[in-house]
Amino acid sequence: MWRTCLLLGSALWLAAIAPADAGSAYVSNEKGNTVTVIDTDSWSVTNTIKVGQRPRGIEFSRDGKFVFVAVGDDDTIQVIDTRTQAIVDTLPSGPDPELFTQDAAGKVMYVANENDNTVTVIDLEKRARLGDIQVGVEPEGMTVSPDGKILINTSETTNMAHFIDTASRQIVANVLVDPRPRFAQYKHDASELWVSSEIGGTVSIVDPAKHAVTGKIEFAIPGLRREAIQPVGIGITRDDKTAFVALGPANRVAVVDAATHAVSKYLLVGQRVWHMDFTPDEKYLLVTNGISNDVSVIDVAAQKVIKTIQVGELPWGVTIAKP
């Protein structure tokens, strides 16, 4: 059923029908083996969906009709139909999938498989595995460049960002960053790639053309040890002016001037803040707080936490439909 929908998912067809689930955020709860659905107008929990074991990476399909969730301990990616909010299919990822990304058209998915040092390439229409790319030890962070030509994968024990040509599926460059790189995010103008290092405590700014680290964002919070500051999730606004960085057990989200890379503010959120996503209008940013089992809602313009929503056990990732 969903396969036919995807096949029909051309631009025209999409324009005619609004996404089924524009005002919803889906949160993966790593320990609870559930996905919590939040209504982003009323900020209330509307549903809790039982999924496979250890759900972590979570993302809407490009057409907004499905939510993909990587269930690592079941070695697969489950597909949730956002209309019925039921699991309708699975994707053939490799073992222990954690994070994944899709190309702009929503036709190809790239999955980081932590257990065998590979990135798996999946054809989303055929639900078939197209191949594997050998990368460093413990692949994790995944993103595609704005022009779609380069796939970035970070490997946590090799401590590199691998630049992979999406056409040839060959690694074209490797950039060494600080220990345990977790997440990678391009600026929308493609001028910079940001890579967070959980154990290194920094965000590396990489020049995507030169394949070189050109700067590092460091964080200092009065009263907190350096070791407690562990950057993970990154969100950059569409105008590339403001960035938010989740600092893990520091229980704060840093607000960063994306042009100067200066940290302007630390927002106190819940415990062990991990990943984040913006609402489509970028008015709000939702961040997952693993240990306090909640999601904080940040007012992006005011740079304030306005709401906390209880979700399932150990919330990890969050995705919000983009119309």
Partner: peptide
């Protein structure tokens, strides 16, 4: 083995 996985890039 881990060092060599990284080492092949360097």
């Amino acid at each position: 083995e881990d060092n060599n996985t990284t080492g092949k890039f360097l």
